[in-house]
Design a binder for these strands. Structure first.
Lengths: 230, 230
DNA sequence: GAGAGGCGTCAAGAACCCGATAAGGCCGCT
DNA sequence: AGCGGCCTTATCGGGTTCTTGACGCCTCTC
């Protein structure tokens, strides 16, 4: 399994010198490198060419780096390291809570960056393959295409509904705590707002479950969280 | 108090002031905190009491912080954040390659640390751990999915019941004292309320044991505690 | 053999959690 | 401006869970 698959890295930075420097260093270490100069470009690239890791600069023209992170997190759990000249705690917190796995302030040493890259890829190494479509009775959920259909009919979910369903469906059968859901969908400041979950899961069940009062797939574990039952 | 499902953090640092400061800040944020001053102590604690995250100082007397990280990585993939005054790249690389998930140099801002803690726990929460399934006769306990079934039938446990069963099942065969159980499930202020244990274990046995009056798996050690028999 | 302490059982009230529903505000679209 | 979708917020009822106290049985000690 340890067959030296070369990892592919997406580098997003608007300064050509930094792009060049990173490209040279990473290629020398055996990484494959994709380059993007703007947020728009990076999102397109990430969608069409699968990469294993993204290095994203915060100070981008156009779409901000934070938005790029959010955009990526919307449909994948690709490891993301943010690079930035901004040293303020608020910037770091914002980027990390947007879904970044690490935050490195420029200027940084190449050895440290490489070590941090190894650390975050190590974590996500054990992920599943592309089990992107999941079938549960009359329910069909396509995680990649972001589509759901119940009893053959396509169902349209609101953004929040989709993120909640996705958080459950990514780990079928496993229990996801209220805290995890609130943190993933709304952010760490909303960990106590369990009423959000009640309202939105009620809406989800109304759309997906044949008998919303007796849900078969979106199960609630009182006092703990929710579970997606296949 | 409500059934707070809080994350438990192990703090390893030899300076009492830093331990205290971290403890106060983390508790205020709703984390459970275990403290250790030396590497030896921390390894013992980590093995005995399950925590969800470890904050480890590098400059420890006795066993070095790096060795603590390696020790933990030897048997678990617990998220680990290293705290250190050392700023050299070599120290960072060494710690990260030893298995640490992040490296924060002192002094650091509390907001940043909390954000980095959220980032690493978010990662490790999502991955499907190795099948942590425990089979004891007609009992099947899935610690990862948080499900229990007896004689093929799924059993639903209340939050407190689950936490008690989990505390026993994480160390099959080992004796867990009443004090440990009360402290883990209800908090340190409830160490005397052994009647809670009697009531809830009676309910657990009623749900799990074929003959609740003659329990085969949830064994009580009079005057000391309880034990999970495989 | 008597007493004390620990344990299991039971039941009742309080506290808690969930689902349902609806009103109000915000935003984008026409 | 008007409209509609979406999210937030509040309230209510019903069901479950937790706590608390009481009682009887067992075992261990004196």
């Amino acid at each position: 399994m340890g067959a030296e698959l070369r990892l592919r890295v997406l580098v997003v930075d608007d300064e050509p010198q930094i792009r060049k420097a990173l490209e040279i260093n990473l290629r020398a270490r055996g990484y494959g490198v994709e380059l993007a100069a703007t947020g728009e470009e990076s999102l397109l690239l990430a969608a069409e060419r699968p990469v294993d890791l993204a290095l994203i600069d915060l100070g981008l023209p156009g779409i901000d780096g934070i938005e790029v992170v959010r955009g990526i997190r919307g449909w994948s759990d690709l490891p993301v390291i943010v690079l930035s000249v901004r040293e303020s705690e608020q910037d770091k917190v914002e980027a990390l809570d947007a879904g970044a796995d690490d935050y490195v302030t420029k200027p940084f040493g190449m050895a440290e960056l490489l070590a941090r890259m190894r650390a975050v890829t190590r974590r996500s190494a054990g992920r599943d393959g592309e089990a992107a479509v999941l079938v549960a009775g009359e329910l069909v959920i396509d995680l990649a295409a972001r589509t759901v259909s119940a009893a053959g009919q396509p169902v349209s979910l609101t953004p929040i509904e989709w993120r909640l369903l996705e958080a459950l469906a990514r780990h079928p059968g496993k229990l996801v705590t209220q805290r995890q859901l609130l943190q993933q969908v709304w952010g760490p400041a909303y960990e106590r707002e369990t009423n959000y979950l009640r309202v939105h899961f009620a809406n989800i069940r109304r759309k997906l479950e044949p008998v919303p009062a007796q849900p078969r797939h979106v199960i609630t574990e009182p006092g703990i969280g929710y579970r997606f039952q296949l």
